[in-house]
């Protein structure tokens, strides 16, 4: 990397010096500064408390409803909305956009719902090797 760019970075970002010397530790360190607050307690008024952390869901983790919304969603509109929108497999980030909640919150609620069996994590029907994915994407993009 050029010295010019380094200088510009250092000017631009007060963490620049740290990132330059610390390699990969920079972003990790920055991460400590941010917390995801959940005013809706992950949709759990009956609160199971902190407990074991909910499943970690990536933005593109696919989830699908394991059942239709029922009595247990009474007064839990977030869960009901998630179940309704996940009748077909959805990525977590799409679900968040569709139910209009912050993605971190949807992740937390969906994690709990996977634990209690109302949502299922699902993988692709036909898992492909990365090489095949890249070629499929290339062909698909060319035909746009």
């Amino acid at each position: 990397m050029s010295h010019d760019r380094r200088r510009a970075l250092a000017r631009h970002d007060k963490d620049g010096a740290d990132r330059d010397s610390g390699g990969d530790s920079g972003p990790d360190r920055v991460e400590e500064r941010f917390l995801r607050p959940f005013a809706v307690a992950a949709g759990d008024p009956d609160g199971s408390g902190p407990g074991p952390g909910p499943e970690t869901l990536d933005l593109l983790t696919l989830v699908v409803a394991a059942r239709t919304p029922g009595r247990s969603e009474w007064l839990r509109p977030e869960r009901e909305a998630i179940l309704r929108h996940a009748l077909r497999a959805r990525t977590v980030v799409e679900l968040a956009a569709e139910v209009n909640l912050p993605v971190g919150q949807v992740r937390a609620i969906a994690g709990r719902m996977i634990e209690d069996g109302s949502l299922q994590r699902c993988g692709p029907s036909r898992p492909l090797a990365r090489k095949d994915i890249l070629h499929a994407v290339l062909v698909g993009l060319r035909s746009l």
Binding site: L62, V64, A65, R67, P124, S125, R126, P127, L128
Partner: peptide, 14 residues
């Protein structure tokens, strides 16, 4: 509970 329609659909890789 009923099975979700998603169960039978082809699910793509994201």
């Amino acid at each position: 509970s009923e099975p979700a329609p998603g169960d039978t659909e082809a699910i793509p890789q994201a």
